[in-house]
Nucleic acid binder design. Sequence first.
DNA 1: CTAGACCTTCCCATCATGGGAAGGTCAAGC
DNA 2: GCTTGACCTTCCCATGATGGGAAGGTCTAG
Lengths: 137, 137
Amino acid sequence: MQIGDAAKATGVSAKMIRHYESIGLIPEADRRDSNYRDYGAGDVHRLGFIRRARDLGFSIDEIRELLRLWADRSRSSRDVKKLTLTHIAELDAKIALLNEMRASLAHLVHCCNGSDRPDCPIIESLAGTAPLTHHHH
Amino acid sequence: MQIGDAAKATGVSAKMIRHYESIGLIPEADRRDSNYRDYGAGDVHRLGFIRRARDLGFSIDEIRELLRLWADRSRSSRDVKKLTLTHIAELDAKIALLNEMRASLAHLVHCCNGSDRPDCPIIESLAGTAPLTHHHH
DNA sequence: CTAGACCTTCCCATCATGGGAAGGTCAAGC
DNA sequence: GCTTGACCTTCCCATGATGGGAAGGTCTAG
């Protein structure tokens, strides 16, 4: 199986497969006489693993560790769970940050009438010249 | 005011101030005889604007447009609001993606007992060998 | 035998940011 | 005056994950 087929089978682009090899995330592929890389079922399985982990937002370093745990028959599920919980905490931090931004923006948008006129609390807030915002709900 | 002072005053690092100049986000700074960059109140104001926009997650290109709108006295607040709503939509897309990842991970973690034993539904799911998960709530 | 669909390596780009080297400038203290 | 240390300058490189594209080799179907 050449790299394009492995890419189609796993959803990991040929570019990325080569990249993963270059950074040592996957072992160097076998080569045919033509120098084309040759992939087997095991390789495809590993690439599928990587793609699923990427889809869940794991970083390359985390995936490296996950692959190690996958290969380690004596791993404890505790170790896997711990890594996963750490990753969830990272996601939570990102989500919280984005939600803060979103809330601030939503407030500004709420205060902007969006008319033809130039006075805009959004710009004023960015300029640091915004008056204190008063809420009258 | 030299670059370090402008950095302290605005929370934008000296590195980034030079970078913003190099990409044309801010005009070229005045220079002293020493070739040191020299900043005035207007520059500091602009850098503060940029920092606040960055803190709200606007991209450099969006900030470029915001600066243009800021400088344009005949802008309509509608244009600012539109840009901001677009940015909120981008944030929402990112948040939704992260939340999906988080939910999938939380489910897997929930299914993993985290013991000394090696059998781990998290790894099995990544490996694509996970049995269908049944929920018994 | 040729066309075209693959493959190879290599370099460059993204986005926002920082690290660090090599060298110039300036102010304070001796 | 001279040294020291804290600035500044430019330039190059790195991140993380991915893609674009060039120049050239290989394979397969017609």
